[in-house]
Design a protein around this nucleic acid. Structure first.
Lengths: 185, 185
DNA sequence: GTCTATACAGTGATAGAC
DNA sequence: GTCTATCACTGTATAGAC
């Protein structure tokens, strides 16, 4: 019987949002405190390791959220449809290209060395998810792997270019391409 | 008769490198001072607008450098060969995927609103360069435009994923794909 | 043009009361 | 668990001598 609202999850969601918006270096404890509604001391109570631990916990939280979002798709027998649902989830998560990627923000941070291992794991996990769909669609392991890697590359790049140009259309065009071509033989 | 070494160009090169490495938010005046060899006051003498103006001037400097790098390619009659030389320049500039993109770093910065216009212009310029090659290769304007946009998306994304996974191979695989397929009919 | 010295707000982080 | 108060430090930026 879960609580009416799990506050820790809510806090992690807000932290995720802050890091995505301001970046790791740009997000100060003052803004993190404001966005979560917790005082600085409360934040340190929940995250004794400080800002670094907040980011690490948010990374874990993100993995759990993605896992939960992808789990129901496991039953879908049609790879084509499964890919569509997966990209729908991606589209929603990044709000049609208007929100940035936490992985990119942490990769670019000054403390990036601290995040190297979980970041690599997160990227690997994303690629694996898409790779599995491509394999299910009958692509060879090598091709499926390359296509999946390229898909993640394109998603990350589309977020960067969309933000840089102030044109979210780049993101939707990219997702459209992936929908049409990722599983093509 | 240019001076034996134009120091301003050298300073801008070092600043460019610092911003690429540490990001805009992560690069402090202390590190910028150390990397350029100029004291903080000297930096403010050359850039009265402070850090923001340093970034803006570096953006302009980057545009000039790219222009200079692309100009000799203008004579190349073969689009295929011209694309190859262009991607060679990209490969060198990002040091085979080991160095980040200034545009991405500024796009992700807290002061990104200040950089919006020149950033958009920089992305447009990059895309236009590739679009021209695609058109010269006989692709329709619409297809050339989309291919060029996608190429920039892939380059930016490959830099992010390569850094995030600590695997520069992603970058070279991506450039290889672009070499092979960007101009395909 | 570069230096030392400094102003002063903001930084991540902590102590201790409640 | 959250608060106020405060720490030592770094942040950007400036003043004025040389």
């Amino acid at each position: 019987m879960p609580a009416a609202l799990a506050p820790k999850e809510e806090v992690l969601d807000r932290l995720l949002d802050s890091f995505r918006r301001d970046g790791y270096d740009g997000a100060s404890l003052a803004t993190l405190s404001k966005r979560t509604g917790l005082g600085k001391s409360s934040l340190y109570h929940h995250f004794p390791g400080g800002k670094q631990q907040m980011a690490l916990d948010v990374l874990g939280h993100l993995g759990a959220r993605l896992g939960a979002a992808f789990r129901p798709l496991g039953d879908e027998p049609s790879p084509k449809r499964k890919l569509g649902m997966l990209l729908d989830a991606v589209d929603a998560f990044y709000e049609q290209g208007k929100k940035a990627c936490l992985l990119e923000r942490l990769t670019a941070s000054v403390d990036r060395a601290r995040f190297a291992a979980p970041l690599r794991a997160a990227f690997v996990s994303l690629i694996s998810e898409l790779e599995a769909v491509a394999r299910a669609a009958g692509l060879s392991p090598a091709v499926a792997r390359r296509r999946a890697e390229d898909a993640v590359v394109r998603i990350e790049g589309a977020l960067v270019v969309a933000a840089g140009m102030g044109d979210a259309g780049v993101f939707s065009r990219t997702l459209g391409d992936l929908r049409a071509n990722l599983l093509a033989r």
